[in-house]
Simulated assay, not measured.
Amino acid sequence: MSIHTIDYTVLAQNIKKWGKELGFQQVGITDVDLQNQEKALQDWLDNGYHGEMEWMARHGMMRARPDELLPGTLRVISVSMDYLPPEAGFAETLKQPHKAYISRYALGRDYHKLLRQRLKQLGQKISAEVEQLGFRPFVDSAPILERPLAEKAGLGWTGKHSLILNAQGGSWFFLGELLVDIPLPVDSAVENECGRCVACKTSCPTGAIVDDAVIDARRCISYLTIELDGIIPEEFRTAIGNRIYGCDDCQLVCPYNRYSSLTNEKDFHCRPQLYQQDLLTLFLWDEKTFLSKTEGSAIRRIGHEKWLRNIAVALGNAPYSDKFVDALESRLGFSEMLDVHLHWAIQQQIQHRKAATHTRQNKTARLIRIVEKGLPRDA
Results as ranks from 00 to 15, higher is better:
residue 4 H to N: 09
residue 83 Y to G: 03
residue 266 K to C: 00
residue 86 P to H: 15
residue 273 Q to S: 14
residue 49 Y to G: 04
residue 300 R to P: 06
residue 114 L to T: 14
residue 38 E to G: 06
residue 336 E to T: 15
residue 10 V to Q: 15
residue 203 S to K: 13
residue 261 S to Y: 11
residue 103 S to M: 12
residue 264 N to C: 04
residue 325 V to H: 06
residue 185 P to M: 04
residue 226 I to G: 05
residue 163 L to K: 00
residue 153 A to H: 01
residue 347 Q to S: 12
residue 250 C to F: 06
residue 263 T to R: 09
residue 318 A to M: 05
residue 210 V to Y: 10
residue 131 E to D: 14
residue 262 L to P: 01
residue 61 M to D: 11
residue 334 F to L: 14
residue 267 D to A: 14
residue 139 V to K: 09
residue 306 K to C: 04
residue 95 K to A: 11
residue 119 L to E: 00
residue 377 R to C: 10
residue 222 S to H: 02
residue 42 Q to C: 08
residue 120 K to A: 14
residue 311 I to N: 03
residue 324 F to M: 04
residue 257 N to C: 08
residue 34 L to P: 01
residue 171 S to D: 10
residue 43 D to L: 13
residue 97 P to T: 02
residue 44 W to M: 12
residue 340 V to P: 00
residue 138 F to T: 04
residue 258 R to W: 05
residue 364 T to L: 09
residue 326 D to A: 14
residue 37 Q to S: 13
residue 273 Q to V: 15
residue 332 L to W: 04
residue 44 W to N: 14
residue 14 N to M: 14
residue 66 P to I: 02
residue 301 R to N: 00
residue 21 E to W: 09
residue 203 S to M: 01
residue 124 Q to Y: 11
residue 254 C to A: 07
residue 245 Y to H: 03
residue 119 L to K: 03
residue 209 I to A: 06
residue 222 S to V: 01
residue 68 E to Y: 01
residue 141 S to G: 08
residue 283 F to M: 01
residue 239 A to R: 15
residue 314 A to V: 04
residue 70 L to E: 12
residue 77 I to N: 03
residue 116 R to Q: 07
residue 221 I to H: 04
residue 48 G to H: 05
residue 93 T to M: 13
residue 14 N to R: 15
residue 229 D to F: 08
residue 22 L to S: 10
residue 198 V to F: 04
residue 81 M to K: 12
residue 174 F to D: 02
residue 194 C to I: 11
residue 56 M to K: 06
residue 16 K to Y: 06
residue 68 E to L: 10
residue 350 I to K: 13
residue 27 V to T: 06
residue 80 S to N: 08
residue 58 R to M: 13
residue 297 S to H: 08
residue 100 A to S: 08
residue 49 Y to H: 14
residue 187 D to K: 03
residue 103 S to Q: 08
residue 87 E to I: 12
residue 95 K to P: 04
residue 18 W to K: 11
residue 21 E to G: 13
residue 113 K to E: 15
residue 201 K to V: 14
residue 295 E to Y: 15
residue 287 E to F: 11
residue 362 N to G: 09
residue 28 G to P: 03
residue 282 L to W: 03
residue 141 S to D: 11
residue 3 I to H: 15
residue 264 N to W: 02
residue 17 K to P: 07
residue 113 K to M: 13
residue 43 D to P: 07
residue 159 G to P: 00
residue 70 L to R: 09
residue 95 K to L: 12
residue 201 K to R: 14
residue 355 A to C: 01
residue 244 I to Q: 01
residue 12 A to Q: 04
residue 55 W to K: 11
residue 294 T to F: 03
residue 218 R to S: 07
residue 73 T to F: 00
residue 224 L to K: 03
residue 137 P to D: 02
residue 35 Q to L: 12
residue 1 M to Y: 09
residue 7 D to A: 06
residue 259 Y to L: 12
residue 272 P to W: 01
residue 249 D to Q: 15
residue 271 R to V: 05
residue 193 E to S: 10
residue 357 T to Y: 08
residue 143 P to V: 07
residue 125 K to C: 03
residue 161 H to E: 07
residue 295 E to R: 15
residue 374 G to N: 08
residue 174 F to M: 02
residue 256 Y to Q: 13
residue 59 H to G: 01
residue 245 Y to K: 02
residue 271 R to G: 08
residue 253 V to I: 12
residue 186 V to W: 00
residue 98 H to G: 00
residue 327 A to C: 04
residue 67 D to E: 15
residue 28 G to E: 09
residue 14 N to D: 13
residue 185 P to H: 01
residue 13 Q to R: 13
